[in-house]
Nucleic acid binder design. Structure first.
Length: 731
DNA sequence: ACGCTTACTTAGAATCTCTGGA
DNA sequence: TCCAGAGATTCTAAGTAAGCGT
């Protein structure tokens, strides 16, 4: 032990060589590109235009600053800071009574959820089968004869204003009634709740057989399918607009599963998917989706009211996903070997219910029973079932702004802040480990170096052939990195090219310190492209080590920490007090973008991107023209004023000046917007905003830079945020 | 230490809703 | 009033990581 040669160590597994769209063969492409199923190869090759370049520059800076961040952290500087430590006020649990005059009146545990007063607007479309992807013809919500439920009844100005006021009031009320769980004492370890009651999940409606006017054709002939086969045919027809249905694996998997649902007779007849014509079914489905859009809010709201809430320790909480996932065809991401397989309909007999013993047990749909009813308060889920494609367990859980989720979220950022206090030691430690005699230690150190510097994911091992071939840090293979002694004027450059979570490509060329570089060279020795780079390391070992350095520390925490610290630094670096609002917003988005790039959060460019860019450019041009016209007019007016000298022309000059100024401002705003949009073409900001950026950083920044500009409603939002933040024991 | 199960977070796409400007 | 675009929400796949039994 400790003196093995890296190369001779056993190979953990030899992955099947899946053809990867963005495998090494495309490495030359040279930019981060989504391996989205949407993108064609040719697109990938040409899609690396300037905008992305800009972003790339940003990336380098980010990484650098993220590293230099480490130097800063020690100093515990400004208090508006990510690290700001003001240990939470001792959280007391106010016994079991509703906190504040909350809307609990209706919330008596035994009372049915009939929260008319609770106007949570929910946009959900309900039994939503995977429907309408493309059917997106900007549906102008015309009221149709059969659905006179006017989406847009003519409203007078007063009515609109009234509705708006009502909404604001409702929001404020809601805020007042918010369960201030953070002011309560926490439960003992492992206890997630003391009382939980809910109505069980919402099941999607049963399958409605096709009307007699809609047909399926095989080989040009009408074929009436059995209900089971017909339903699955509809699943395929629904997706016809999607590229999925053109993929070989998808079609094969679908066809195989479809045939299982057929009668012997059907199976005998239908042997070739290419001879199937789903056109009429597809058209019918599109029409149905259209019709469904006209359903009133009230109809949707009814379902939300009935199934969307639960009672958790005497507080009404919103459930995140209260609907059982409808049956359909499995859409894996990337080159998923199981794409197209039939995702079966879930019955109550498949569902486990979790709630309090003493609660009103949810009633299963008529004629059905639950698989099991249990009362486990060490978990947060309300219901679960096992999905048939991969055998994973699916859960019904609370909404993100519930206590259970909120508390976890808060803890996550607290752990990240704790890391800040000891990250220097940890870094020193792994730098020392790079020189260790033990291979395991060195592998661990290099992996940690990547995780820390590049915010890579841990990279658990995956079952081969069951999912798309994706990797994280610990599961990197030899084929995923290329070492360059020299590259683009840098020494010791590691070129990464692999598919990460969701089959998003990670492509990056990173100069590393020579100790890391030399270790990598040794790790690569005597290995095949398909062998594991860190063949002696697992995420479990890595995390075990990390938790010994700091309680609660895992690989994932580095991502949170580095994301948040990067935001903080970028905000500091990029924003100026003298900027106007648009510019400040651009700075914020750029800081956010730096984080998204660090975390490799990419998106497919919006379908309408090019068009909307052209539109915006058109507006900018028009505005420019307008501006020059306004300037000319101003000049004229000035001349006139000089000539005449009386006050009337002076007034005109004043007005013209104002016009010029307005024009300039609008132009600037649009230009900033264009820049922002362009830079954001392939970057997804949402994920980092939602999961990685400690909200306290944003709040601090907003309060310093934007407060003077805020509209009252916005500053109200901010105040709310402050309440939350301060209640979390930070400023 | 390992393999498996379970519970929970993180992820991008799809869809829905709101808003401001033409 | 209409529409484009932004932003929010929903959906569910795909990760991380803990715990347990062997």
């Amino acid at each position: 032990m400790g003196r093995e040669k890296e190369g001779e160590a056993k190979t953990k597994h030899k992955p099947t060589k899946l053809k990867r769209l963005n495998g090494c063969e495309s490495a030359g492409a040279g930019e981060n590109v989504k391996n989205s199923t949407k993108q064609t190869k040719s697109k990938e090759k040409t899609d690396h235009g300037k905008p992305h370049k800009k972003v790339k520059t940003l990336k380098t800076e980010t990484l650098e600053s993220s590293t230099s961040a480490s130097e800063l952290v020690k100093e515990e500087p400004q208090e508006d800071d990510f690290t700001t430590k003001k240990k939470g006020v001792k959280r007391k649990r106010i016994k079991d009574e509703p906190v504040e005059a909350s809307s609990q009146s209706s919330a008596s545990p035994s009372s049915k959820k009939r929260n008319k007063e609770n106007g949570h607007r929910e946009g959900s479309d309900e039994e939503s089968q995977k429907k309408s992807k493309k059917g997106k013809e900007k549906t102008v919500k015309k009221e149709e004869g059969e659905h006179p439920v006017s989406k847009k009844p003519k409203m007078t100005k007063e009515e609109i204003e009234e509705a708006r006021q009502l909404k604001i009031k409702k929001k404020e009320e809601e805020e007042q009634n918010r369960w201030r769980w953070w002011e309560e004492e926490k439960y003992e370890d492992g206890v997630k709740w003391k009382f939980l009651e809910h109505n069980g999940p919402y099941f999607p409606p049963e399958y409605q057989p096709l009307p007699d006017t809609v047909h399926f054709y095989y080989n040009g002939e009408k074929v009436k399918l059995s209900p089971a086969a017909e339903e699955v045919a509809l699943f395929f027809a629904q997706m016809l607009d999607h590229e999925y249905t053109t993929k070989k694996v998808f079609r094969e998997n679908f066809f195989e599963d479809w045939r299982k649902e057929m009668t012997d007779e059907e199976r005998c007849l239908i042997q070739d998917l290419d001879k199937c014509d789903f056109g009429e079914i597809h058209a019918m489905h599109k029409a149905k989706v259209e019709a469904r859009k006209n359903r009133t809010k009230e109809e949707k709201q009814k379902i939300v009211d009935e199934y969307g809430y639960c009672m958790l320790d005497h507080h009404k909480e919103r459930i995140g996903n209260f609907k059982i996932e409808p049956p359909g065809l499995f859409r894996g991401r990337g080159e998923h070997p199981k794409q197209g397989m039939l995702k079966k309909r879930i019955q109550p007999e498949d569902v486990i219910i979790n709630c309090s013993k003493e609660s009103r047990i949810p009633v299963p749909p008529a004629g059905h029973c639950w698989k099991e009813v249990r009362h486990d308060n060490s978990v947060t889920w309300l219901a679960s079932w096992t999905e048939n494609i991969q055998g994973y367990i699916k859960y019904i859980m609370l909404n993100a702004n519930s206590k259970l989720k909120g508390e976890k979220d808060w803890e996550k950022y607290e752990v990240a802040r704790k890391l800040k206090t000891c990250v220097d030691n940890i870094r020193n430690q792994y730098h020392l480990d790079l020189k260790s005699k033990e291979v395991v230690r060195r592998q661990r150190a290099v992996a940690l170096y990547f995780i820390d510097k590049l915010a890579l994911r841990a990279g658990n091992e995956k079952e081969e052939g069951e999912t798309a071939d994706t990797v994280g840090c610990c599961s990197l293979r030899v084929e995923h990195i290329t070492l360059h002694e020299q590259l683009d004027g840098n020494e010791c450059v590691v070129e990464f090219d692999f598919l990460g979570k969701d089959s998003i490509r990670y492509y990056n060329k990173v100069p590393v310190i020579s100790k890391v570089f030399n270790n990598l060279k040794r790790f690569l020795k005597n290995k095949q492209p398909g062998d594991d780079l860190f063949n002696r390391l697992s995420t479990a070992m890595l995390n075990k080590h990390l938790s010994s350095l700091m309680p609660g520390l895992t690989a994932k925490v580095f991502r949170t920490y580095n994301a948040s610290i990067t935001l903080q630094q970028q905000l500091k670096e990029l924003s100026n007090k003298s900027d106007n609002v648009a510019e400040k917003l651009l700075s914020y988005n750029r800081a956010n973008r730096a984080v998204a790039i660090l975390c490799n959060h990419q998106r497919a460019p919006p379908k309408t991107f090019d068009q909307s860019m052209t539109n915006l450019q058109g507006k900018i041009d028009a505005r420019k023209e307008q501006l020059s016209l306004a300037k000319t007019e101003l000049k004229e007016a000035k001349k006139e004023a000089k000539k005449k000298g009386n006050s009337d022309p002076k007034l005109v000059v004043k007005r013209k000046k104002a016009a010029v100024k307005r024009c300039e401002e609008q132009l600037l705003k649009m230009e900033v917007q264009a820049t922002d949009r362009e830079e954001n073409k392939q970057i997804a900001l949402g994920t980092s905003k939602l999961n990685y950026l400690d909200p306290r950083i944003s709040v601090a920044w907003f309060s310093i830079l934007l407060m003077p500009f805020l509209s009252s409603s916005f500053s109200y939002c901010l105040r709310r945020c402050f309440t939350l933040v301060s209640s979390c024991g930070s400023n």
